[in-house]
Design a protein around this nucleic acid. Sequence first.
DNA 1: CTAGGGTTAG
Length: 602
Amino acid sequence: MQMPTPIRAPTWVSRRRHFEQKLWDLDKCKDINQLKQMQALVYKSNLQQDPFIAPKSIAAFSLCRQMDSALIVFSQVRDPNVHLYNAMIRAHIYNSQPSQAFATFFNMQCCGIFPDNFTFSFLLKGCSGKCWLSVVSMIHTHVVKWGFDEDIYVPNSLIDAYSKCGLVGVRAAAELFRGMKERDVVSWNSMISALLRVGDLSEARKLFDEMPRRDRVSWNTMLDGYTKAEQMSVAFELFETMPQRDVVSWSTMVSGYCKAGDLEMARMLFDKMPEKNLVTWTIMISGYAEKGLVKEAIGLYIRMEEAGLRLDVAAFVSILAACAESGMLSLGKRVHDTIERSMYKCNTLVCNALIDMYAKSGCLHKAYKVFNGLKKRDLVSWNAMIHGLAMHGHGKKALELFFRMKQEGFMPDKVTLVGILCACNHTGLVDEGIIYFYSMEKDYGVVPEVEHYGCLIDLLGRGGYVKEAFELARKMPLEPNVKIWGSVLGACRMHKAVELADDVCNLLDKLEPKNAGKLSALSNIYASAGDWDNVAIIRLMMKSIGRPKQSGASLLVLNDEYREFTVMDKSHAKSDKIYQMVDRIGQHLKLLSPVTAGLCDE
DNA sequence: CTAGGGTTAG
């Protein structure tokens, strides 16, 4: 059979077709080298102004974190249309530059280009956090005024954005949701996830039961709500009744059991599930690492590598964070090896997680090595390093680094200042700490939060200003938390201020009566002052409450072996020798520094 | 003629 002769298009059309086909997926290009090749093609065929190609180029550069290049593409287009502006706004949001995104948004209106429904969806993606509430509600007003809420995507985006703005935002989202003329599954799902974000499980469940049609996202969202609330029995019930289970459902359950500390159940489901992906493996390994189960964590990590899975940024960061929490250096180092051999060895997010892991595990040299080798340091890198130094008593070095970061043009944020106050605290620099605290708002625009007050109160207390610490805790403009009262009580104990401790406990009794934890703190204070009558009374009170506080345990890692011990623990065979040694160390410390003296009274 | 947006697990 003879094929009909095709009618040939003019050469220039087919050439264009040819290039367009090659550039079809330009906007999905994540690899910078491939992107450079494609850009060469764009310029060679003179398509850089093409209204179809230019937004794709911007999207690609934004994916590859090349905002400079994205901006060049944008500026080269003579008459930008809505599409191009939208692409640029989306690029800024994707690269966490919401202020630039809004600048572009205002700019387009100045140029007489009207925003469309897409513009608002993109902008809303960047509004996350309490401080954005007013912006979101302003966008809401605009949206209603211009009638963009006809498009279901826009109110759905609004619900999502509102729900990230705290409790007030969720209320606004609920109001919007109630007023919607028509809702689709996504509207319902977004509203349920909003309610779960603020912990309103019952209201979320009500919507879940009410909604006309549930898809797998609805079930998985509700499932996650129960696991996050550690209601594993309800979660399991839901898991068994849901019409279909996918990887997300199984992974959610595994994650829930890990968080609840039931690693056996988690592993059972992990082994049983029909399909696993990178996220599943990450959850299970992090679960083991967080709980300090070295053999299991490393064993599974090796198995994952053997299975040929390539870790991504989130996987690296999650596992390293888990290692940091339990101080699991052995796995952390292994992950570091993998990173060195991967394309992420220069990735700032990954390196920040490494710095934090090494710093929290006490390997400050290694942390510093990663920090020094990092080409593109961000605020988080500096904060992690400063905090690491501060935590381990290198307050002077932490402060030096603080000066260096300012020299290099970084603006300290609230986290940095917690680190700085912590550095002063752990180095006994009382005066410096006080100065930093009272000038942080003026110098860095950081309004002190509870954490900062906690540092200052701890600092005052340790430095012997127990009365001042107590007064500050009582008069501070924010609600003091348990940690704050804990440090005041700790200071009372350290400096044997029994009467003051009494005052603290009386105050606490009014706020939160019958708290066994505080009573035991008070009993410790009487004990260290030798007031045994009062100790006996308190112990009796604790008994009558009938809720003996579970004693806290300390964890020690030696050669990958974990040893847990509690106060007055005599379970170890050589405990006598150990206590003798602790005593000697204590004597030694007392001679060295008056600040640490109070720490070794027991 | 052609695309681009919202919800779930680390």
